[in-house]
């Protein structure tokens, strides 16, 4: 019996400076395959649809259960995680391309270091006095904890930056993911003590004013993070912060 084949068209690129090209692969189909297991087939048998021996496809992946954020790709025109994208849910031929917002390293591998730099810029951490035992942390209402936890699931996968029309080479907008992190750290009782520093970082160039409210981000986020709610809340917070900065306030910390 002839094996069922799956056609995949991969956008490849040998190096950051070389031109991209498309290459088609015929992959042995199995039920419940995801994009990663289809790509893995090209490692065991690196032959393209024309029967030519080629270099295996390069991609990033790690946890394969949608918690590490590594395997973001544009699959049939939608940026998403390759691990949780099941082949059976897709129209064929399947088109897989690297995210275009980030510099391509090779094939489907992109450089997302700008996202980690943004986390430095917005001071995405809780300043603690040290790791020595200082007893329990501050109490927090469970209800508030529940929405903050949703924000804390951000994997820095970059899918929201890919979908955002305002994140591109002509703008220095940091994008939805780091914005939402500011709301997370400002929600924590200790993090709140330093919220003005984070809000002020968002009031600089590349900050919150870069958002054009297209709302694409919230639709593509694989973790269902309420990114637009975060941005709306931060708009309010930065406005209040600018008043405080201008007029002064007893609550300006």
């Amino acid at each position: 019996m002839a094996e069922e084949k799956l056609t995949m068209i991969i956008t490849r690129q040998d190096s950051p400076d070389s031109p991209p090209y498309e290459e088609t692969f015929k992959i042995n189909y199995r039920k419940n395959m995801n994009i990663i297991s289809a790509l893995m087939e090209t490692q065991k048998n690196p032959v393209n649809a024309e029967g030519k021996h080629v270099a295996p496809i390069q991609w990033e992946s790690n946890c394969l259960e949608e918690v590490c954020g590594a395997c973001s790709m544009v699959i049939n025109d939608v940026p998403r995680q390759a691990c949780s994208t099941l082949v059976d849910t897709l129209e064929t031929p399947i088109r897989v391309a690297p995210m275009s917002t980030f510099p391509v390293v090779r094939d489907l591998v992109v450089d997302r270091s700008r996202m980690f730099d943004s986390l430095k810029k917005v001071k995405a951490w809780i300043p603690i006095d040290g790791t020595h035992d200082l007893g329990p942390g501050p109490r927090m209402p469970e209800k508030k904890r529940q929405w903050a936890y949703e924000l804390s699931k951000c994997m820095t996968c970059g899918v929201c930056l890919e979908a955002c029309p305002n994140v591109n080479s002509k703008s220095d907008f940091i994008g939805p993911a780091p914005l939402s992190q500011v709301r997370l750290f400002n929600s924590h009782p200790t993090g709140e003590m330093h919220k003005s520093e984070r809000l002020e970082a968002l009031m600089e160039d590349g900050g919150i004013s870069g958002c054009g409210n297209s709302q694409n981000c919230v639709q593509v986020c694989p973790k269902g993070i309420p990114l637009t709610t975060s941005i709306a809340a931060l708009n309010r917070d930065t406005n209040i912060q600018s008043f405080k900065n201008f007029f002064g306030s007893d609550h300006a910390y």
């Binding site: 603690i128 790791t131 035992d133 200082l134 904890r145 903050a148 936890y149 200790t190 993090g191």
Partner: peptide, 10 residues
């Protein structure tokens, strides 16, 4: 407790 102080959303 340390992790809680670091902001883990337990």
């Amino acid at each position: 407790h340390m992790l809680d102080r670091m902001g883990v959303m337990f």
